[in-house]
């Protein structure tokens, strides 16, 4: 299994890593049993993502997709950020090994979860913005979601 240079760059020099003290939208997806947890912190001002950071427990691809996802949504209106697909993350990283695609799904879900958290706190309905409810892809095969 070989990672692209872009993946290795984002793994070894992750952008926007850490906590955001004044975050007003926080989303966490994944679980430790599967080996991936992503937590995204958003600072949103008038529906614009003015700052973003992440913390991730996971493999090289998990760190790199988190880092790239934060780069892709920084400065964007939330409706635009919600259009960011896992495929866009994969393409921006010049591809991922097939077994690591679920990391990009997790990154997309973490963004949605953080935006949902913000919207709920604002008294808004995430569904009105097209926020996807994170769902298990069944891709890791080791958690209760997969019926084991």
């Amino acid at each position: 299994m070989i990672y692209s240079a872009k993946v290795m760059d984002h793994f070894s020099n992750p952008r926007n890593v850490g906590e955001l003290a004044d975050a007003n939208g926080i989303g966490e997806v994944g679980n430790a049993k599967c080996g991936d947890i992503m937590k995204i912190y958003l600072k949103i001002d008038h529906d614009i993502i003015t700052d973003v950071s992440f913390k991730t427990f996971g493999c090289g691809a998990a760190v790199a997709t988190s880092s790239m996802a934060t780069e892709l949504i920084k400065g964007k209106p939330i409706r635009e950020a919600l259009q960011m697909t896992n495929k866009a993350v994969v393409e921006a990283l010049d591809g991922l090994p097939a077994v690591k695609i679920h990391c990009s799904v997790l990154a997309e879900e973490a963004v949605h979860a953080a935006i949902a958290d913000y919207l709920v706190k604002q008294g808004k309905d995430p569904a009105d913005y097209g926020v996807k409810v994170p769902h298990c892809e069944g891709s890791c095969g080791c958690c209760d979601h997969c019926g084991e």
Partner: peptide, 8 residues
């Protein structure tokens, strides 16, 4: 660990 939400 500094990157890990579990460590936090």
């Amino acid at each position: 660990r500094d990157m890990s939400p579990l460590w936090e």
